Simulated scan of single mutants.
Amino acid sequence: MAQLTLPLRIIAQPKASYRERYTCEIDRRRNLSQRFIRAETNPDNLDYPTIEIPKQWDSHKLYIRVTLVTVCSEQVPVTYIHPYPIDTSELNVIKDVERNALYFPTSEEELKSGRKSFRIMRRKLAQYELRNYGKLCPLDTDEKDISYATNLHNARRIIDTYQLGKSQLLFSIAELVSDDLSFDIYHETSVYSIIMTANTLTHINNDESFVRCVPTKGHWNGGDDILMIIPKLDKRKACQIYFECPSSNKKDLIHFEFVDMKTIAFTTPLCPIQANGNQSIEIPIVVHQNDNEIARVNFLYQSYNQCSNCDIDAMLFDYFESSNSDEQSSSLDLCFNDADISLYAHDLLYCDLLI
């Protein structure tokens, strides 16, 4: 290994603007399309962030470490490991989850060409995940830092203080030194990408009577996962939810879980009406608290053999591939009160509005 201090050079920067994505949009277990960080327009027409490797590096143990980091600001003049995890579907990549770093091996072909591209996914944490994350860790140390956020249980405060909507990729040359996956990091080779900034949401309506359900349709046999946002919901009070059958007074209570103060999650039951061919029917979902109806939305049961989640995934894929392949999007048409509704629910609403 030649002992050099030449830094890496980025020849295809990641896009400066992108839309944040949650697990629901990049979960490979649901066969969703992988949403990799795309590259800015570049002379070589490279699709993904790409670096140039100095020719002097020729070791078969050579890796490129990629870390997602925060952006320094006047309020927080320290670079931290970004809490939003990065991942990849590429093979033989060593993942350091605690340090939010990916170690990509370099092939002989890449060393000869002197360049390497990276297909990386970035996932935004839901509020409950961010609250449980704890103190952020400064880059290249093993110590947790004194928090600049006064309340680590306030997800919005953490996002605002550390400007988590902004991030950078840090590329460094690393060499595998032992079989226990230890690395020597050549910090003098490190290079930061441009700042990547998440598109912000536009808040234009805070109507407390507006109830939202995602998805709004599902299979006749039930089993679809539903997220329902109810501005009038009071988590401290007893709550009942049921699917109302229009042909009878039967009301089967549905088990549900709170996602946050105003959001519940549940699974649809079998449609109370027997299917007759390729039929669709709307069944009201009703929510009661203290004997008062606080929410009512119609859910469309469909008898064909296709689940609603697959419908949504396919439509989202078509939409983003045709009009948003560069990870950008238009502003959100409707959001609820930030203090009460989780960021996770916001993004599901956004997906539903696009459809």
Rank of each mutant, 00 (worst) to 15 (best):
F258T: 04
A126M: 02
T50F: 08
N151P: 05
I51N: 07
L32D: 08
M228G: 05
N305T: 13
G134W: 01
S322A: 13
R65P: 01
K116A: 08
E188S: 13
E110A: 12
P49Q: 07
Y63L: 08
Y103H: 14
F256R: 10
L233K: 04
T5Q: 11
A101F: 02
L169H: 03
L8P: 03
L253P: 02
C307H: 10
L181C: 14
E129Q: 15
F36C: 06
A314E: 11
I146K: 11
H288L: 15
S322I: 03
R9I: 01
I94G: 04
S89Y: 10
I355H: 06
F299N: 07
L130S: 07
I86T: 06
Q3K: 14
D224T: 13
S303A: 15
L125R: 08
C307T: 13
D260K: 01
T23Q: 10
T263G: 04
Q75V: 08
L102C: 09
I146Q: 11
D96A: 13
D225G: 05
T88Q: 05
I194K: 05
E175W: 02
L348R: 15
Y319T: 13
Q279P: 00
H255I: 02
R115G: 00
L343F: 09
N290T: 04
E25S: 11
E20T: 11
Q302A: 09
D140F: 11
K55I: 06
T70R: 01
I81R: 04
L68G: 06
T88C: 05
C271W: 02
C335H: 10
R156D: 14
I173R: 00
K124C: 02
F256D: 05
T106G: 03
D96H: 03
Y242R: 06
E20Y: 02
C137S: 04
N132H: 08
N290M: 11
D224P: 00
I226R: 08
I53N: 02
T161A: 05
N45M: 10
L348Q: 14
L152H: 08
Q163W: 03
R123W: 00
T267I: 14
I273Q: 04
S172W: 00
S73I: 01
A174D: 01
I264H: 04
H346T: 12
R99C: 09
L176I: 00
Y48P: 09
I64A: 09
F317T: 15
I312N: 10
T50C: 13
L62H: 07
D338K: 08
E25Y: 05
V259D: 14
D47L: 15
I264L: 07
V211D: 06
P215V: 04
F210W: 06
T88A: 07
D87I: 00
R212G: 03
P54E: 05
Y128N: 12
